[in-house]
Simulated scan of single mutants.
Amino acid sequence: MTIIPYLPFLGAAIGVAVLLWGIHWFLLGRHPDLGNDRKFPRQILMLGLGIFALLALILALPVSESARGQLIGLIGLLISGFIAFSSSNILANLMAGILLRITKPFRIGDFIRAGDHFGRVSERGLFDTEIQSECRELIALPNIWLINNPVTTIRSSGVVVSVSLSLGFDVHHSRIEPLLVKAAEESGLEEPFVHITEIGNFAVTYRVSGFLVDIKRYITARSNLCRGVLDVLHGHDIEILSPNFVHQRRFENAEKFIPAAFQPEAEEKTVNVEDLVFDKAEQAERVDQEKQKLTKDIEHLKLALKEADEDGKAHIKENIEEKRNLLKSLEQTEEASGEDNAESSGFASC
């Protein structure tokens, strides 16, 4: 058996290998500063090109049609076996993870609500998305579940904070509405407004809302609004009663259930709740922002490198290398943080 008939095929195989290597260098090799999010679509593209090149080489083999068909069938059998032996949920979550990276309904650090879960996104993986809840718990949500269920994302430009309450019919709404607006303003919200959402059998339901610019203080702002509503209404001798309480009370009883004013002796220490419960999400968002900034800086320096003189090129190259080292350090910190959170249990859940 002579090797001469296979020489064109061997040359084609070497050419395809060199071409794939060149594409890999062009997409990934010459960009060591790319983050994981930007590497992922290029890696998927390289995988697809590799499979396509393998099939093209099989079709180019100098063998009979039956042997070629058997080889293609064997590859199809291997791929089918891989899919069959791997869980369908794994493949579904992988495809859902790719779709989430394409559509980008949220990013690291965003507040999201999915089903009964609410928290800040602390990590985005290929198979699941991790959020940090108000109780500082880390919750892993399968990507396929996020695709099949509505996901509410709080916009980074601001959010409307609201609280609802029921008041009796004995107080006119024209008196209530200015007080609720005042409570929202004193709690630090902008452009407050009040809606009457329901007229029930025993009470009127009001909803006071205001705009919060700093979404990282969402939980504190919601608590401050509730506190402000209590202080303002009780300070103006207005009772906040539940429908059941109003229904069961004797109407001839003139006693009012308003708590007495209390002045603390010393100023209480203020704790930033969000910094405590969303520590991982906060760190992940900060690292992600720094990585994006470093990547953009490196791209700008590369453009400046082409137009700089010999003296300036040396300085620019040093800056590029320094920023690349910082980028690698951030990625290592991110990986180490993920391992530490996986090994430690953190605070108790609420």
Rank of each mutant, 00 (worst) to 15 (best):
M1R: 13
L10T: 10
L10C: 14
G11D: 04
G22F: 08
W25A: 11
F26R: 14
F26C: 11
L27V: 07
G29Y: 01
G29P: 01
R30V: 02
G35R: 06
G35K: 04
G35S: 08
F40E: 14
F40K: 11
P41E: 01
I51L: 13
L54K: 03
A56Q: 08
L61V: 15
P62M: 01
G69K: 06
L71P: 11
G81H: 04
G81A: 07
S87C: 04
M95H: 11
L99S: 12
L100A: 04
L100M: 03
F106Y: 12
H117V: 07
R120H: 01
R124E: 07
G125F: 00
L126Q: 08
F127R: 12
E130R: 14
C135V: 05
C135S: 15
L138S: 13
I144G: 11
L146R: 00
T153V: 04
T153S: 03
S156A: 14
S156L: 11
V161L: 02
V171A: 04
I176E: 09
L179G: 09
T197N: 10
G200V: 06
N201R: 12
F202E: 15
R207W: 01
S209L: 00
S209H: 02
V213R: 15
T220P: 09
S223I: 03
L225H: 02
V229I: 04
H234E: 06
L241N: 09
N244Y: 08
R249I: 05
N253S: 12
K256Q: 11
A260R: 15
P264Y: 02
P264C: 03
N272K: 14
V273E: 09
V273W: 05
F278P: 09
A284C: 05
E285S: 13
E299W: 08
K302N: 05
K302P: 01
K313C: 01
A314V: 13
E318S: 14
K328V: 04
T333I: 05
E334R: 09
E335V: 09
A336K: 07
N341P: 07
E343A: 15
E343H: 13
S344L: 08
F347C: 14
S349T: 10
C350M: 05
